[in-house]
Design a protein around this nucleic acid. Structure first.
Length: 622
RNA sequence: GCCUCCGUAGCAUAGUAGCUAUUGCGUUACCUUGGUAAGGUAAAGGUCACGAGUGCAACUCUCGUCGGAGGCUCCA
């Protein structure tokens, strides 16, 4: 919808000739209205998705303008020339009729005839507020008043908060004894009361820069980060790890487009169920939105596939680089909350609720195991379960099972009716040093989209059925994993411990430091030898004193540091400084390799794409 | 999106309505050949975020824009 509001002394128009066959006849061809707000109006193609929302928004906008300029007479003037993508005349007429009816409740309203060539004269007042244009759609991004269906619905729905203990008993949050469960308390308070007392920048923001992992990119939109070589390595390792594990679990990896047609019949309906928070792209005459998850692509694939009950559960998987969510600018922070993020998304199509529940349980264990591999144990996360009352009443033991598995009390949110498309959902939340909580792993039982997307499988009797669909991100966003690891390291540092990343993610696993440049050759040989074992090794060939090189290695969080000189060259024994340990350890090369292999067992390996000689490395951050 | 605070060299910082804008790290050059967390000397490096306004004079005051942080709100 595009409108142009003109506060006018008068408007005079005359209907000359029908421009559309379908145009209704008019009884009064010529008309003059004085002291009015003329609203030139173009109804657009995209408005067809949700005419009622558009009417509501239109009335709101026009009312606001009319009140501002103190006009009590409004002229709705159909004016298709404002847009290059008009809606069908039928819908436009329908919308305009409704608009007129609504506006009449508060204003004197006239309208010019629809579908005619018209002659007109407008005398615009010319004061600063007298000419205003507005543009909006059912999905418009600066949609402040046209809240989506789901949002409005959510306001009405009551939710009940509880803590469930390991024995499956529900407690009121206020009455629960949180002793020994500090993080859960912080998380529960955070979720329920939305209380926050933070005045500092989160710790990981400084770390992500200092360690040359990631940085803000002023040349892009907010929440779209740049990743330096070390950050790319860490991301790539996490991506590989999670993808490999999902494939082991039975995931079938696909790749789907990052943008979708706004007017696709199925997608547009789905879109309307959520707040208008997506990026839009206009290309020629079509509008696209950037995906906020892999659901669309995977559902469209599933829609076209021939699926037998024997194939189920069918687990479709994609690592989305990127998913996009246009979060409000004030909500973005470092790597915690982004507008472009990398999210593994694994759906499972299941025959019925029973199979969905069975699979849901398998995946819950799977998520815990994924997070453990990433470096986040059960101690590091808090469980939240969101469930409809109806589902809970008849499936208590499932929720209890989730709590039992994590082995500590959890937050339960219960709704008296279903808001979104799911009946049960859990999240594993990380609570950071400032008591902020963010969801990592999550899974949902979706009872709606099988039908919405017309996804079918053939059952034993040869009949078509819609599957139940599980939506799971086993790790949550990769960037958020990095955020959690850095925040965890920062918390350890505050407790006087040495901050570090899991060794398999550490960019430099072995730093070789020659005592003088005399030993550079030896150092280089040793570096190559270790690197050949798939251990990320580099050596500090810069003309610096040993103490300084060690300091540099410590500041980079290198897992192990070797200082080598004459002693090592002769004895072939290495003095190894292991991060987090006070004393030096003497090892042979073989023992060192074994130590690293043991620490990184079963985790993927990738090379770091930087020169092994530190003197040849570009400094990306001061 | 709204409210509050912030933006000075690659990074981190000091400072003032007035003459050539601090300091540290890093960078470059030279000296130092050094054994487990900072060796020495020197040099280069700045449109004080951007734009407008007020003043004889603006990095400094005011407004706007952009970017960042925190709060509100939100998180499919």
């Amino acid at each position: 919808m595009k409108i142009l509001c003109l506060h006018s002394d008068y408007i005079e128009f005359e209907a000359k000739k029908k421009a559309l066959k379908s145009a209704p006849d008019v009884d009064q061809a010529k008309k003059k209205i004085e002291e009015c707000l003329v609203v030139l109006t173009s109804v657009e193609k995209r408005d067809e998705n949700d005419p009622d929302a558009i009417v509501e928004r239109y009335v709101k906008e026009v009312t606001a303008v009319a009140n501002e300029v103190k006009a009590d007479s409004i002229v709705v003037y159909p004016y298709v020339h404002l847009t290059s993508e008009p809606s069908s005349p039928q819908i436009a007429m329908d919308i305009l009729k409704k608009v007129e009816k609504e506006l009449k409740k508060e204003f004197k309203v006239d309208s010019s005839p629809f579908g005619y060539y018209k002659a007109f004269t407008i005398a615009c007042k010319g004061h600063p507020m007298s000419e205003l244009s507005r543009e909006f759609g059912p999905e418009s991004k600066d949609d402040c008043c046209g809240e989506s269906e789901a949002l409005k619905k959510e306001e009405k729905i009551k939710s009940y908060w509880h803590i469930m203990d390991v024995d499956g008993k529900l407690h009121e949050i206020d009455k629960f004894n949180f002793q020994g469960h500090d993080n859960l308390k912080k998380f529960a308070v955070y979720e329920k009361n939305k209380v926050r007392q933070v005045d500092k920048e989160p710790a990981h923001v400084a770390l992500m820069k200092k360690l040359e992992i990631a940085d803000y990119e002023p040349g892009s939109d907010a929440g779209n980060m740049r990743y330096y070589p070390k950050g790319r390595l860490i991301k790539s390792l996490l991506e590989t790890y999670i993808t490999d594990r999902v494939i082991d679990y039975g995931g079938v990896e696909v790749e789907t487009p990052i943008m979708y047609d706004m007017n696709h019949p199925t997608l547009s309906k789905y879109l309307q169920r959520f707040p208008a928070r997506q990026y839009q792209i206009d290309s020629d005459k079509r509008s696209f939105f950037l995906r906020f998850a892999a659901c669309f692509g995977q559902f469209l694939i599933a829609h076209d596939a021939t699926i037998s009950y024997k194939d189920l559960p069918l687990k479709l998987y994609e690592l989305t680089r990127y998913s996009f969510r246009r979060e409000q600018s004030g909500e973005l922070t470092g790597l915690r909350r982004l507008r472009a993020f990398t999210m593994p998304d694994c759906h499972a199509l299941c025959t019925d609720l029973d199979q969905a529940i069975k699979e849901f349980k398998i995946r819950y264990k799977f998520c815990h195991s994924i997070l453990k591999g990433v470096g986040l144990k059960k101690d590091d996360v808090e469980l939240a379960v969101r469930v409809t009352k109806e589902f809970y009443e008849s499936n208590k033991e499932i929720v209890e099972g989730l709590v039992k598995e994590i082995g500590k009390p959890a937050l339960i949110e219960m709704w008296d009716q279903r808001i979104f498309y799911f009946i049960l959902k859990y999240e594993l939340n990380f609570v950071d040093g400032m008591n902020k909580a963010s969801a990592l792993s999550t899974d949902q039982i979706d009872v709606e989209n099988g039908e919405r997307y017309d996804i079918n499988y053939t059952d034993k009797e040869g009949k078509k059925n819609h599957p139940h669909i599980l939506h799971c991100s086993p790790s949550g966003a990769i960037e958020r994993n990095i955020y959690a690891l850095l925040e965890k390291a920062a918390m350890q540092q505050n407790q006087g411990k040495t901050p570090m990343l899991p060794m398999w993610l550490t960019p430099t696993q072995i730093r070789v430091i020659p005592v003088t440049d005399e030993f550079n050759k030896f150092a280089q040989g040793l570096t190559e030898e270790l690197a050949a074992e798939n251990i990320r090794t580099d050596f500090d060939d810069r003309e610096l004193h040993v103490g300084k090189k060690i300091r540099a290695a410590e500041k980079e969080w290198c897992s192990t540091v070797l200082v080598i000189g004459e002693k090592e060259q002769k004895s072939k024994k290495l003095n190894v400084r292991i991060r987090g340990k006070k004393d030096l350890v003497v090892m042979s090369v073989k023992e060192l390799i074994e130590h690293i292999k043991k620490e990184t067992a079963d985790m993927p390996y990738k090379r770091l794409s930087l020169p092994r000689e530190l003197s040849k490395r570009t400094i990306f951050v001061g």
